[in-house]
Every structure is written in structure tokens, then in C-alpha cells.
Design a protein around this nucleic acid. Sequence first.
DNA 1: TATTGTTATACTCTATAACTATA
DNA 2: TATAGTTATAGAGTATAACAATA
Lengths: 136, 136
Amino acid sequence: MDEVNASRELGVRLVQAAERLKADFAEAILPFELSVPAARALLLMDEPVPMRVLSDRLTCDQSYITRIADELEGRGFIQRVPGADRRVQLLKLTRSGIRMRESVFAAVTANNRVQLHLSRAEREQLDHLVALLLGD
Amino acid sequence: MDEVNASRELGVRLVQAAERLKADFAEAILPFELSVPAARALLLMDEPVPMRVLSDRLTCDQSYITRIADELEGRGFIQRVPGADRRVQLLKLTRSGIRMRESVFAAVTANNRVQLHLSRAEREQLDHLVALLLGD
DNA sequence: TATTGTTATACTCTATAACTATA
DNA sequence: TATAGTTATAGAGTATAACAATA
């Protein structure tokens, strides 16, 4: 019963650590005046990507991608280009989108607690534990 | 540079694991028709507690505690009782609040991934790694 | 009939600002 | 003057439902 409580508290601290990571991310992208989801989306766009695929990668609803795409298009970082299947829109980085993506990437990696606070061995341990937690 | 990427992806998975924990919590309390923050607050109320103290424990603004207290009071789970300092309101569990708190506690511990998926040794490892991540 | 993307709308969690009543 | 709590409001992230176009 004490073990039960310790486990619950560990869960609370794990969530706290994750919130810290998210706060670090938000702070890192502050200079770019992008919303967090838009910055996340940028990082997931290498090749031109169907909006539907992006909603899978972000694990969010398709309708939310419309919103993110509007933001990124409004800032000139992507274009919507029609796909072969004419229902599909591909999101494609513009020149300035490519530069912004690189800036975001540099900012968030420079600021990464996981790398700054953990040794390689510790990261491997953590990776394993996280996999156990996520495993069916 | 590959290590940089691996660290970032590990961070993403860590956040995913935390969201899973949060989703488990939300699912566990579903039968009780409590909001997540109200359920969290319940778990933090043992003795009658000043609203201000509760806002520290939940790390949220005081104004949000008013909202949570309204919900819990509306459901009959707490009473506001005046403190010695007459600016202060203590939140105090009612009989039915005590029972609800026990139900919530039982539901969320029965459902705890950290305990279900990790051995004691693994939990200790995780605790250590989380402390490193949170450390200044 | 099923799927892609869009629109409108709404919900949850949470903060900020302005206020009151005490201290 | 500073603090506890309240109120009203707003903003971020996200989902749902209904819809048009296409498959």
C-alpha cells in the first residue's frame, strides 16, 4: 500500500518532468512567434506531406491541421499544393519555411534537458523504461 | 548530431508516456463525473486546507482554486470553512467527500501504469532519472 | 459509400486583471 | 501596504459535427 503510493507519486513526478520539457520547448521557440503546435508541425515536415498524414504524426484531428496550416501559410512558411488524388493537399515548405524549420530545430535542440542532464547511458536506461511504460 | 536527434526523440516519447499517464487518470475517474483538476485536488486534501496552500500544491493560480472549490462544493464533497485569519477559507472534506476521495484513490491506483509495468528496481531507476531531469 | 479537407462551434485547462475584505 | 479569495474575461490547445469535393 506504501508501494502503491510511491508509484503514484513517481507518476506525478514523471508528468512534471514532461511538463518541464514542454515548457522548455515553448521557451525555445518564443523568439519565432509560432504556436507550439505549428512549431511541432514544422519539425515533422521534411518532404511535402498530406495533411492527413500530418494529423497522424501529431496524433490530432484533421480539422486541427487546417488551423495549423492556416497559421504556417499565413506566415509564408508553407504552401498548400494539390496531390495526385485531388482530395489531398500536400503541405510544402517554402524557402523561408525551410529556414524557419532549421532555426526552430537549432533552438529546441540547444535547449534539450534530456541531452543536457543525462549521460548517454542514462538516456538508454530512460529510453528502455519509457518503452516499458508505453508498451501495451 | 545524431545524438542530438536521438535525445529529442526520447524527449518526445517521454512526453507521450506522461500523456498516457494523464489519459489513464482521466479514464479512471470517468465514473465519478469529476473534472481532472477537481479529482487531483481531492487527492491532495487530507486535512482541511487553505485555498492558497492548495494552489501551491497544484501549482496553479489561486483563482483556479475558486473554480475547483465551486465544483467540489456544488457536488457536496467539500465545505468552505473560515480560518483563524479571516481572509482564509479552509476547504474541508464532507462525509461524502471522504468517500469520494477514497473511491478516486482506489480507481487511480488500480490503474497505475508505473506500478503495473515496472518492477521495483525499474521504478527506482526511473525515479533517479526523473530527478536528474528535474534538477536545477 | 468512404475519405480529404474545411468550417463553425464548443470544451477543458489555465492565466490575468480588477476587485473586496481583511491583515 | 500586502495577502486571501472572487469574478469576469480571455487564450491556448484540441475535439466534434456537418459539409463539399472527390474517390
